[in-house]
Nucleic acid binder design. Structure first.
Lengths: 330, 330
DNA sequence: CTGAAAGCGCTTACAG
DNA sequence: CTGAAAGCGCTTACAG
């Protein structure tokens, strides 16, 4: 038999109103009464029904998180940062994916309309999500992680600066004949741009024949670097837009008989768990995944909890990235 | 202005009761009336409030998932399997971690008592969770993933069989002087036992001096194998209880001047993303992570949806593991 | 086939 | 300091 507020009130010989007041720490309750009520609560193990409270208060204490999928590397780190902050603020995480295409979007729209959560975190959202009219029309607080999508505030790592650090690292080691294996999407584009800007400033030649396209897989990185080799291009350093791609580049170079790092230095992006175990281990850019999740959650909760102060919930927040130097590009 | 069932009823000139009947697809509604109601629903974009529905029905359509942490490799895969099934069944995922110790457990207890979800999935739960009295006292349907914890039904991979497959693989390649780097916990124990059983049947000597202890880190695997080398033990194969540990073993052997696989074959466990990129790539045991999540979610939802049939929600379900042969132990 | 009323378990003015 | 009543937005017997 589930114990309700009515039961607690009966046992403590007060009204439900008074029990509610004690529960919510309202000040105007007689001390002795409060003690009595608390005793009953403790004795019965009473906990208010989450559903009833949220219906009455109009707030669910739920934070929605929408992710493209859960299996890609790095997602877990971001989510852990989110979870730590959300849980510490006495909220819970309602996790959804867009892994199932149109059906996922339909579900998402319903959740927004059903007021299933008080605020929403969007991890690397597709345009179909940020353009969603149910979302646009709602006054739901939203923070985008890892991708800027107007008109929503966002939190992202400084990929361009990370890529620029790689370029400076190459130049400082006198690797001036650089090649890039890039990928599809905004992410890779920003990295390529950051990398390129440093070369431009340094007056290092960097034409389009030094760029090969790849998807975000090792096999794709491997064949991209093979194409570079086959093209006759002379290069002593390769920057890959992603560590998995870089791992493929390593394999491709080995197959082509180029020694890393002696003949060619290689750097990746992301600092995945595997990057420390490639042969040689990868020089790469570490993204502040956990901090990204924490910062986004903090901004959202600040809004939900009505912190009118400090960080207004608008505009982008950019978190720094770090160059991690390992043997592939010492 | 949020549109409610009352508003829909008013516009469709029917009672809330009738709207509710249409919403829930009750059969006894006049066809024309139903059409009219549906038109109003479509025109207003009305979606029932999730909170109100769950309070009235006594069901939240939420599935709780408790995980130790989100960053370890493999968790995301399991969660993806869970999410796919849960979302396809028109439920949502309430995700919590025990990452914050006692506070996490306290929160968990509150959620159980507050009826925050209709059913619960426990991923590799600590005893503190499965012994929790709020959980024991509740009649909440529970399924444990990746760890058997009476009295709850469970879904797990057949680790012992996977380890046995490794042992048979070693023996089939005539590697009979085997060593093991094991780890703490039930998981590693089961693997060691499965491995050992095959050796026993084959009459291959395997004393305790062939076992080194490690934690679940590469550094720990590296020093464990160094100890084996330093002990003067002669071995031509190493089975590590985990791929990260095996990656460390690879490093330790290289440092000790032992060639893999020529001098020593190495196998790990888990088939992590990094395992394909070590040098040489790791022979290992693939765990059915996604399928684990799917199977657990299906069992739980079967119970929630009242499928009185097929899979009763009791006892363990065991899913097969696969040997993945790569260059470290061809 | 349809609706008025009670109920789910809380909170919140309002009145005292 | 305290309680009766209304309300949050639905669903569900019950009666017609």
């Amino acid at each position: 038999m589930r114990v309700t507020i009515a039961e607690v009130a009966r046992r403590a010989r007060v009204s439900k109103t008074t029990v509610s007041r004690v529960l919510n720490n309202k000040s105007d309750v007689d001390a002795a009464t409060a003690v009595r009520v608390r005793e009953v609560i403790a004795a019965t193990g009473y906990i208010p029904s989450a559903g009833a409270v949220s219906l009455a208060k109009g707030r669910t204490r739920l934070v929605g998180v929408l992710v493209p999928a859960l299996s890609p590397p790095g997602i877990g780190e971001v989510l852990q940062g989110v979870a730590d902050v959300v849980e510490a603020s006495d909220h819970s995480l309602l996790l959804s994916t867009t892994n199932r295409g149109a059906d996922s979007l339909e579900r998402f729209t319903r959740q927004v309309r059903a007021h299933a959560f008080d605020g929403l975190l969007l991890l690397d959202p597709p345009a179909a999500v940020t353009d969603n009219s149910a979302l646009r029309d709602s006054d739901l607080p939203v923070v985008v992680i890892d991708g800027a999508r107007a008109p929503f505030p966002s939190v992202a790592g400084d990929d361009a600066a990370g890529a620029a650090a790689v370029a400076r690292h190459f130049l400082s080691r006198n690797r001036r004949r650089v090649a890039v294996v890039t990928g599809p999407g905004d992410r890779a584009t920003a990295r390529l741009a950051g990398f390129r800007s440093v070369l431009g400033e340094a007056g290092v030649p960097f034409a389009d024949d030094r760029v090969a396209e790849a998807a975000f897989t090792a096999g794709s990185g491997r064949s991209a670097v093979r194409r570079l080799v086959a093209s006759g291009l002379v290069f002593d350093a390769v920057f890959a837009c992603d560590d998995v791609v870089a791992a493929g580049v390593l394999i491709g170079l080995r197959e082509a008989g180029r020694a890393v790092p002696d003949d060619v230095a290689v750097a990746g992006f992301g600092d995945l768990p595997l990057s420390a175990f490639t042969q040689p281990p990868l020089t790469t850019v570490r993204r502040p995944l956990r901090a990204l999740g924490e910062a986004a959650a903090r901004r959202l909760l600040g809004k939900l909890l009505g912190d009118a102060g400090e960080t207004p919930l608008t505009g982008p927040t950019v978190l720094p990235t770090d160059l991690v130097v390992r043997a592939s590009a010492p």
